[in-house]
């Protein structure tokens, strides 16, 4: 297949396991690889073959949201080229998945061939948890966690991809885990990509409101599906001296919580 020709759209062959290309996301790659391994385990347990193309870096959001369409378009083309051969493209992040699924197509106005290719690609892209439930039909996981957890709805996943009940459904099947809803779980945590360093005072005010809601929930563990939001909320909770632990939802669903929580030191 030549690099620039759109491949023929073939549905996953019946009987063969679906081939999934894992879009790791830059933050998981750099800061929390255990989320990537949890994603691989969850999908393999559900019967998928998972591969990780090396030709991936970032989804391109920093460029796209900074008004740099040219670089965003170059990155989008590279991601599409690296992943379009898979049956599915899955990312452990609503924000990055939405960039791939919803925003890449916006980058190719006036280039019908590239647009068509971005549209075909878009149909294959899913955020991890909603992929497990909505595509693979999973309604429970084999995992245990002793304690109470609260779930933050990250903005892009919630409002661009409709991810709300899926993580809660799977979390309810985790043995020993009690879900305690926080107030305003659907309100932004103040991360916003480069926003949090461009407008640190405002970001701080927003995340302070969020950590108040998290504390008031009474939960011992904070979960969400996006590492950017999680690092922001964990960073604030730790700065405030909170004992609440913070993890990506995939770690708990995969039963892989042996690594220290986000921002915590190694035990022992």
């Amino acid at each position: 297949m030549s690099a620039d020709a759109a491949p023929a759209q073939t549905p996953p062959p019946a009987g063969l396991p679906p081939r999934v290309g894992l879009f790791v996301t830059c933050l998981v790659d750099l800061f929390r690889p255990s989320v990537g391994f949890a994603a691989v385990k969850l999908m393999e347990d559900a019967g998928c073959t998972v591969e990780v193309p090396a030709a991936q870096t970032c989804c391109g959001q920093p460029a796209f949201n900074s008004g740099d369409r040219a670089d965003a378009r170059d990155i989008a083309k590279a991601v599409i080229r690296a992943f379009e051969g898979y049956d599915y493209v899955v990312a452990p992040s609503g924000s990055c998945a939405s960039m791939l699924k919803k925003h890449y197509v916006e980058l190719f106005d006036g280039d019908p061939a590239a647009m068509e290719r971005a549209n075909l690609f878009s149909a294959k892209v899913f955020e991890l948890v909603s992929f497990l439930t909505d595509v693979l039909g999973l309604d429970q996981v084999e995992a245990a966690f002793s304690g109470s957890a609260t779930y933050h709805d990250s903005c892009s996943g919630l409002r661009e991809l409709g991810i709300e009940r899926q993580p809660r459904k799977l979390l309810q099947s985790v043995e020993g885990l009690e879900l305690k809803e926080m107030q305003d779980s659907d309100v932004c945590c103040g991360f916003g990509g480069t926003f949090c360093v461009k407008y640190p005072d405002i970001s701080n005010k927003i995340v302070s409101e969020k950590t108040r809601c998290i504390e008031e929930s009474g939960a011992e563990l904070l979960l969400a599906g996006d590492l950017g939001c999680l690092m922001n909320m964990a960073g604030k909770l730790k700065r405030e001296g909170s004992r609440i632990e913070v993890r990506h939802v995939a770690e708990v669903l995969a039963g892989m919580t042996e690594q220290p929580a986000i921002g915590e030191k190694k035990r022992g």
Binding site: V24, V28, D29, L30, F31, R32, P33, S34, G36, F37, V52, A54, C196, V197, K198, P200, D201, S203, N204, V207, M231, N232, A234, G235, K236, K238, R239, Q259, I262, G263
Partner: peptide, 17 residues
Amino acid sequence: GWTRFRDLPAPQGATFQ
């Protein structure tokens, strides 16, 4: 810009890749 108001979680170790 990040650490004025919050801690920065350290990377776990080697990259996923």
